[in-house]
Amino acid sequence: MTENERAAESRRMRILIVDDSSLVRLYYRNALEAADFDVEQAINGIEAMEKVVAQTFDLVVVDVNMPRMDGLSFIRSLRRSASEVAAIPALVISTEAGQQDIDDSRLAGANYYLVKPVSEANLIRYVAALTGVPR
């Protein structure tokens, strides 16, 4: 294994949490940081869009109901972005548990859908799976 490969292997995955509730962001952030992920936060889709074009992320974790720009609109504009940004996987975490909500989110371009409440263990499990981190 070369130096570069080793560096890439040990690079910490960067996660963007998009949720309008500050306590929810904090709860998810604490869980993910304890599992060695780097975490950035955004309070709505607009702020999230600004962050994904300016920084590198391995996954976005997105709430659906948010003011100004909701989660599905954010994922749709993410998927229409330049190739690198468009390829970021998206995990939707929502209070809505209906099949229509899940279908809508898949259509918008989400990779996976979890219904709140999400335990710390489950959050880590799905984030690890979607970023390819062995656990």
Partner: peptide, 14 residues
């Protein structure tokens, strides 16, 4: 306390 002890902490906007 809520983040540490309430399993529904992310289900509501506290």
């Amino acid at each position: 306390w809520l983040m540490e002890n309430w399993k529904d902490v992310d289900l509501y906007n506290i």
